[in-house]
Structure formats: structure tokens, C-alpha cells
Nucleic acid binder design. Structure first.
Length: 851
RNA sequence: GCCCGAGUGGCGGAAUGGUAGACGCAGCGGAUUCAAAAUCCGCCACCGCAAGGUAUGUCGGUUCGAGUCCGACCUCGGGCACCA
């Protein structure tokens, strides 16, 4: 064979790895273990470039760590429950199960040719009854430990399709299929008590040293710890049972700036008024037409309605404030009621302006005088301000001090108490859908809500369901929900809610350590393999998935399924950027966008159109997603160029943490380079002796490359590792070193390339007579002696501008460097006799002359 | 609206506060070839004949020195709890 031919060799090496069992994870007490995990994929149907990028990154780490002597666990599975399977069934017929497992088979077949070092024997899908049965067992454990409860919560309700909608399915306040205006509706739903762990989940973030700072910050903000005052207003004119109105505020120091109180449309008081007041009922109904998402609520026009009720100010019983129902008050935060201080909160300011309420300032900037405000004055809490309507603490103090003084005042006078509040809400896991893990409880007329017996698990999903009408197929199944009460044995009804798919993905990392165990985990296996040493996934999961997993690990520990060391399951986290692509849309008859696949769009100078000429609107480049159809199929590249080219390509150029916009060019170039390396290796076996006097230069370059590539991989700078390999390839190609040195250099280069392009590396290794498989060879070490340089080029700046450069011995004392610098011809010319005011010599770096 | 990021040549990007543009793509020129493909060599931020000047989204600041640190803003992206 005399040319690079991945089509033949890649399959051959994959077989060789397979037969040698190179990637089978083994518990080996004599070796350190390393668990590398990429966020498992949703089986959408085909792999996309984001997958290739994600799994190649993980594979580089896994192969590298394996070379470094670790016993590596690198598994793969499928996050297989979720709405798209049901949507497909509704649109095209068929069954979610067939659709899902069919997609898994296709995607597995697409992933295997990538040559990933995955232990496929551990593969599972979350929709396997063996998996979700263990999840149900844990749900029962959680119930027993009081980590689960039921309460009423609001959902998006489509009144035409008579079905619950996901936020994603609500577009501009309307159902995505029916187009009907969505309503908020209350249902009794299941919750996990994640908010009980809010403080701990927040504090433990400090220990996650190998997580990106931005993710820790996002999680901290999401948990949203705040210290404030909770107190009750006495009401006047309120319905029976509402003689007090509890409010929570983080700015009790602004109490004297209150000009109104406001409650959420979902507040019990609002509901009570709704029953007797048609005006309130209309207003509340209008508020409920906004979706349930925080974004929708925050963006909606701020509206309020005066209830006619008044509350007495806690510091002055004669002072009465009006009570509004306002659409921007969230029932889930604090008490669902606030007092409004328009002078120091922009939202309150807008509200007060709209409804013509007073805007009395509480404090002014230090040194300023009280004046009418054109907008809310909201300085940092750490800033000192002068209180003109203060009531606790010094006249001039920081907001922080004033808040503490106000809380102390309230507690001393007995009208309120300091409270620590979290923004984090309990995790609602109920879904009124079929394709999810059934919640293993039974509703009995006599015994109430009863947990299913563990021996009856898994509670399997029925196969005979239909999707011709919207709504939950489990609910309308004729017999599935019929069962015997586990407590009294009488006929009862099975819970038809299924679990949020985030539950499935909150513990799969633990399951990979013993995927066939008859319990959720196996003690010896989790103890050996946990924690995940390196977790890799998209930044879009920075908050929810990772926070839920952190909670779940704690809950599993409480139930004995994880050791204490695993309550933070991911030691190191890397968030890769997304693969983005332009979006293409045509317009439907109703003006709504109809997304189009890139492969169906023809681009030309004028814009873009479909094959039939329909004009296409080009949207911004955003995350590739099924719903926007802006996806590109990586299989074309793999079948045309081979896996190594695709792998090399996705590791080149873009830093892994940054978004990369997919473009079709570049794959050719990647393959050219790999073919070049192959050719250079082949030449080593055929060329003559060469010149040994050039060996040292080549080997020095090689050792620098070892150091740089190793640092690149360790630091998740794969693009830089690739660039260094390009550089060394150029050096190698130009080198006239001896055959022996070239063989050594090429063998080492094959090793350095092997995490990225493992098949080519094996080719080269075998060609040059390397021992065994590269996949099992020890990672090369850079010899420190070979990294030392004797001289260094120093730029000389004059007033910060580069004017000259000098070459000096590496260890030359600064005084001598100064002398040489000042006697440099170009320096003398630029100085033109001006006196030198200051001379800065940064050894090995730079000289700066200031005149 | 709120929270978190990112902006550097034609393009992807590199640069512990110390020579801005490594490396790659595209482009241009050359070698080889009957010709092409493939390969190899060279050039390649902008303005300027040159000396030199201007350049890291914008505007300010700190510093001997700023792409990097600080402040304000602009644009784009992610998340906002039922998309996964």
C-alpha cells in the first residue's frame, strides 16, 4: 500500500481495538481510575456536528488518560425519553418506542465509525425498563425520605387541543398546533424538594474548583440567595381570612418610600377577590393569558389593578397604601406579595408613574439634595448614601448597613423578621405525557396516594397507545391505570403522570458504573469509578441539568445509592461551545415561520430560495437544533473522507469552549494534512540515511512539540495542540535528519496525534514498526534538557512602541541587556539624543525605554 | 425584562499585562507536468514610493507598556425552571 486510505484502514483498526478489548473499562485496584463522560445524546435520528465535536473531545481526553496509565471508563448511552418521540408519532404515525429505538440504532451505527474509545458494553437507554425501573425504585426511596411531595402548580393549557403545553410549544402566547390562546391552569403535581438543598447547593459551588467560573456564577444566581425582611401588613377592606398580608422585601430600608402594595394574580387573596368581583376576575383572567415562563411574565407590559383594599404601614398605622394586583409579581418568589418603592426600583417606578402614585425618595446620593426623580435611583448596595426618609441606622450609610439596621429595627419592634430566601423553586417533575418514566404511585379511594411496591417494578409503559388525539395517552388508556392498591388490595388507579426527562439524565452517570445491576447502583462499582473526573457538554446545560444532577446525587446519597464523596458527582466540567448555523425559514399562510433544512436551501448572491423558487429568509446563526432545522449531517464528511478527517477537523481552529459556525469548507484541508503525515511517514521507510548533524534540531523541536501538545490536551486547548502538530509536521518535512531520528520523531508524532486521529496514528505506528498498538502505548514525556534555549530575541520599545530587537544570551544580566539595548543603532536613531527617563528590562521578555 | 458569555485580517483563530495576527483556510506568484490532478517553494492586516503611520466592536480610564485590567455603551449568542 502506498497511500493514505482511511476507508480500508479505519475499519481494520477498529476491529483490532475491539479484539484486544482496549476500551473495556475494568476495575483495577492497582491503577488510578479516570472517568470521562460526555453528556449523552438525545436520539433525534441522526448525529450532528455538535455530537461529533463533543464526543471527539471526550475521546481525546479518554485516549490521552489511558496512555498516561489510567484505568479509563468512557461510556455511552441515550437520553431517550421526551416529547419529540410523541410528536413524531402524532405527525407521522408509528410508536415512540419504535421511533426511539430505531433512531438509537441509526445513531449508534453512525457513531461507531468515528472510532471512539467507548466501552459499548455499558450502553443503555433511559427508556429501557431496566433503567427506568431503577429510577422508579429511587423515586420510592425519595418518597420515604420525604424528598417528594405533591402540590398544585400552574401549567400552560391549550383550550382547543385540551392538552398541557411545554413552554417551547407556546409561541407568542398561543399553542403551536392549535394557535389558540394559551391559559394558565392549576394541576396537582409531583415535586422534588430541591429547595431544601438550596443553601448547600450554593455553598458547595465553592468547592468545584475545576468548573468554569461562569457556570458556578450562573448556578449561584439561579439559586439566588437573598437576605431580607418578611412582615405582615394589616389590611382594611379585605375579605374574611385576609386581615394580614405577608410580604417579603430585600430592601426594608426603603420602607418609608412605600407607595403601594401589590400581589401576584395567583395569590390566594387575588383568587378570593376573583370569586366576588367580576372586574378582578376579568383582570386576573387577562394576566393568566400570559404563559408560565419567567421570560413571558417579565417581558409582558406591566399592568395592575387597584383592589380597593388598603394596608396600614407598619411604621405608621395612619398611613394607608393601596393594594394592587400586578402581573409582574411572581407567586413563586417570596410570599407572592410586595410593597412597592418606586423611588428605588425601576419596575415600581414605571408602575407608580403609570398609575399616578407618589414617588418619595428614601435616600439620595451622598452630598446631593432631595429632588424629583426622572427614573429610579438604584445605587449599588455597597455604596454610601444619605437617608432622607430613614428610620434605622445612621443618616449616611451603605444600603447594606441600612438593610441590616432595618431588619434589626423590625425584630426589636416586633413587626417583622429577617429571612433568608432563595429564588430556587422546588423541582416540578410531573409531565402529562406518555413517553417518560411512569411515576410509581397508586391513587386509592380509601388509602389515598400509595407508593407502589418495589417488587412490582418496573411499572412499564403500555405499548398499545394511540397518538391520533392530543393529551396524555396513559390517561385515556382503557386499562393501564387499573391496578390493586398496594396497601389495601382494593381496585385503585395508577398515577398517569410521567417524570420530567431531566430526572433520567440526573443519575445516568452513576448507572454507567454498573449498568446491569439489579439495584440503582452497585456499592463496589460506584466506589471505584465515581466521581466523573471530566464531564463535557454544552453550555446550554449550565444551570438546569447540572443543578438537578447535583441535587440528585445528594438525594441518592441519603438513600444509600451513592457514597458521600459523590454528592458532587462531577469533579471537573468543561462546557464546549455550540455548533451554530444560519436558520432558514419560509412563511406559512398565517405568517408564522416554517423552518427549512440547509440542504434544501439554495444560496446565491441575491439571498436564498428553495428548489421550487420559494424565497427563504436567512436568520442569524444559532445553536443547531431540530426545532429550527438548522442542522448539518456529519456523515457526509465521514463517508467521504474518513473519521480521522472529521475528528481532526472539529478539533482544529476553534477553541472548544467557543461557539463554532459550521461551514462546509475545510474538510479537504484536514484530509490533505493527514495524507501528508502518512506520506512523510512512508518516506521514512524508503528514504536514505540523512544527515545526523541535523538530529539534535529535529529532536529539540520534537520535545517542544511533546510539551506543547501535552499542555494543549491537558488544558482543553485542542486547537492549539493541533496547530503545534502542524508546525512540527512542517519542521519534520524540511528536516534532513538521519533516518533513525526521523523514525523516532515520526513514531512520537503518531502518539501525539493518536488522541485526535487514532486510526492514522496506528497506520503510522505499524508502518514504522512500533510495538503493539498506539492505543496501548505509554504517552511520551518531554525531556526538560531538550527544552532549554540558549539565546532569546528581545524587542526594544521606546515609549511603548516597538523600534528594534536584539538577540542576547538567555541569562544575560539586565544591566548588560540595558547596555546593548542603548547602543543599538536603531535605538540611538529613535532616541535622537533625548535623555532616557526610565529603562525597564523584563528578563527574557522585553526592554522598554521611556524618554 | 433578568442572569451569564463573546466580539482580533477576506475567514477560523494565536498571544503568563511585554514583538498583535502563531497555525490553518481562502487568495496570489512560482516549481514540477505535454496538460491537469496531486505535490513542493514563496507572498499574504490596512494606508504609504519610502521613512513611517493606523489597527483587536465603540468611548473613556489605570500602566513604562492594554487584545488582555477597570468603567460606560453597542452588537451577537446561551439560559430563564414543561425543548433536550
Amino acid at each position: 500500500m502506498s497511500r493514505y486510505d482511511p476507508a480500508i484502514t479505519e475499519a481494520r483498526w477498529q476491529k483490532a481495538w475491539d479484539e484486544a478489548g482496549v476500551f473495556t473499562a475494568r476495575r483495577d485496584e492497582n491503577r488510578p481510575k479516570y472517568y470521562v463522560l460526555e453528556m449523552f445524546p438525545y436520539p433525534s435520528g441522526r448525529i450532528h456536528m455538535g455530537h461529533v465535536r463533543n464526543y471527539t473531545m471526550g475521546d481525546v481526553v479518554a485516549r490521552y488518560k489511558s496512555s498516561c496509565g489510567y484505568s479509563v471508563l468512557h461510556p455511552m448511552g441515550w437520553d431517550a425519553f421526551g416529547m419529540p418521540a410523541e410528536n413524531a408519532a402524532m405527525e407521522k404515525g408509528g410508536h415512540p418506542k419504535e421511533w426511539t429505538y430505531g433512531n438509537i440504532a441509526v445513531m449508534r451505527d453512525q457513531m461507531k465509525p468515528l472510532g471512539l474509545s467507548i466501552d459499548w458494553s455499558r450502553e443503555f437507554a433511559t427508556c429501557d425498563p431496566e433503567y427506568y425501573g431503577q429510577q422508579q425504585a429511587m423515586f420510592l426511596d425519595f418518597m420515604e425520605k420525604g424528598l417528594v411531595y405533591r402540590k398544585a402548580a400552574v401549567v400552560n393549557w391549550d383550550p382547543v387541543d385540551m392538552t398541557v403545553l411545554a413552554n417551547e410549544q407556546v409561541i407568542d402566547g398561543r399553542g403551536w398546533r392549535s394557535g389558540a390562546e394559551v391559559e394558565r391552569r392549576e394541576l396537582t403535581q409531583w415535586f422534588f424538594r430541591i429547595s431544601d438543598f438550596a443553601g448547600e447547593l450554593l455553598e458547595a459551588l465553592d468547592g468545584l474548583k475545576d468548573w468554569p467560573e461562569k457556570v458556578r456564577l450562573m448556578q449561584a444566581n439561579w439559586i439566588g440567595k437573598s437576605r431580607g425582611l418578611q412582615f405582615a401588613f394589616e389590611t382594611a377592606g379585605a375579605p374574611a381570612g385576609f386581615d394580614r398580608l405577608e410580604v417579603y422585601t430585600t430592601r426594608p430600608d426603603t420602607l418609608m418610600g412605600a407607595s403601594f402594595a401589590a400581589i401576584s394574580p395567583d395569590h390566594p387573596l387575588a383568587k378570593a377577590l376573583e370569586a366576588s368581583d367580576a372586574g378582578v376576575a376579568d383582570f386576573v383572567a387577562e394576566c393568566r393569558r400570559v404563559g408560565t415562563s419567567e421570560e413571558a411574565l417579565e417581558k409582558a407590559e406591566k399592568k395592575g389593578m387597584d383592589t380597593g383594599i388598603r394596608v396600614r404601614h407598619p411604621l405608621d398605622p395612619a398611613w394607608e397604601l393601596p393594594v394592587y394586583i400586578a402581573n409582574f409579581i411572581l407567586m413563586d418568589y417570596g410570599t407572592g406579595a410586595i410593597f412597592g418603592c418606586p423611588a428605588h426600583d425601576q419596575r415600581d417606578f414605571d408602575f407608580a408613574t403609570k398609575y399616578d402614585l407618589a414617588i418619595p425618595p428614601v435616600f439620595v446620593a451622598e452630598g446631593a439634595e432631595e429632588a424629583p426623580l426622572g427614573e429610579a435611583f438604584v445605587p449599588m448596595k455597597s455604596e454610601r448614601v444619605r437617608y432622607v426618609r430613614g428610620f434605622a441606622g445612621a443618616t449616611v450609610q451603605t444600603g447594606e448597613e441600612a438593610v441590616n439596621a432595618a431588619i434589626a429595627h423590625a425584630e426589636a419592634k416586633g413587626y417583622g423578621r429577617g429571612v433568608t430566601n432563595y429564588r430556587l423553586r422546588d423541582w416540578g417533575i410531573s409531565r402529562q405525557r406518555y413517553w417518560g418514566c411512569p411515576i410509581p404511585v397508586v391513587h386509592c379511594a380509601d388509602c389515598g396516594v400509595v407508593p407502589e411496591r418495589k417488587e412490582n417494578l418496573p411499572i412499564r409503559l403500555p405499548d398499545d397507545v394511540t397518538f391520533d388525539v392530543p393529551g396524555n395517552p396513559l390517561d385515556r388508556h382503557p386499562t393501564w391505570h387499573d391496578c390493586a392498591c398496594p396497601a389495601c388490595g382494593r381496585p385503585a388507579r395508577r398515577e398517569t403522570d410521567t417524570m420530567d426527562t431531566f430526572v433520567d439524565s440526573s443519575w445516568y452517570y452513576a448507572r454507567f458504573t454498573s449498568p446491569r445491576a439489579k439495584t440503582p447502583t452497585d456499592a463496589a462499582d460506584v466506589d471505584y469509578w465515581m466521581n466523573v473526573d471530566q464531564y463535557i457538554g454544552g453550555i446550554e446545560h449550565a444551570i438546569l441539568h447540572l443543578l438537578y444532577s447535583r441535587f440528585f446525587a445528594r438525594a441518592m446519597h441519603i438513600c444509600g445509592h451513592l457514597p458521600a464523596k459523590a454528592i458532587e458527582p462531577f469533579n471537573a466540567l468543561f462546557t464546549q461551545g455550540m455548533v451554530t448555523h444560519e436558520t432558514y425559514a419560509t412563511r406559512g399562510a398565517d405568517g408564522r415561520p416554517i423552518w427549512q433544512l440547509p440542504e434544501d436551501v439554495i444560496r446565491d448572491e441575491g439571498g436564498a430560495r428553495l428548489k421550487d423558487g420559494t424565497p427563504v429568509e436567512i436568520g442569524p446563526s444559532i445553536k443547531m437544533s431540530k426545532s429550527k432545522k438548522n442542522v448539518v449531517d456529519p456523515m457526509d464528511i465521514i463517508t467521504r473522507y474518513g473519521a480521522d478527517t472529521a475528528r481532526w477537523f472539529v478539533m482544529s481552529d476553534s477553541p472548544p469552549e467557543r461557539d463554532v459556525e459550521w461551514t462546509a469548507s475545510g474538510a479537504d484541508a484536514a484530509q490533505k494534512h493527514l495524507a501528508r503525515v502518512w506520506r512523510l511517514a512512508h518516506e521514512v521507510t524508503t528514504r536514505g540515511a540523512g544527515d545526523p548533524s541535523h538530529d539534535q534540531a529535529l529532536l529539540k523541536a520534537l520535545h517542544r512539540t511533546i510539551a506543547e501538545v501535552t499542555a494543549g490536551i491537558e488544558g482543553f486547548a485542542f486547537n492549539k495542540a493541533v496547530a503545534k502538530l502542524y508546525e512540527f509536521t512542517n519542521t519534520f518535512s524540511k528536516s534532513d535528519a538521519s533516518a533513525g531520528a526521523k523514525r523516532t520523531a515520526m513514531l512520537t508524532m503518531a502518539q501525539l496525534m493518536s488522541p485526535m486521529v487514532p486510526h492514522l496514528a496506528e497506520d503510522v505506528w505499524a508502518m514504522l514498526g512500533g510495538e503493539g498498538l498506539v492505543a496501548q502505548a505509554a504517552w511520551p514525556k518531554a525531556d526538560p534538557a531538550m527544552l532549554v534555549e540558549d539565546s532569546v530575541t528581545l524587542p526594544i520599545q521606546i515609549n511603548g512602541k516597538r523600534r528594534a530587537e536584539i538577540v542576547v544570551p538567555k541569562d544575560m544580566p539586565p544591566a548588560e541587556v540595558e547596555k546593548i539595548a542603548l547602543s543599538d543603532e536603531a535605538v540611538i536613531r529613535f532616541l535622537a539624543g533625548q535623555p532616557v527617563k526610565k529603562l525597564i528590562v523584563v528578563p527574557g521578555r522585553i526592554v522598554n525605554v521611556v524618554v
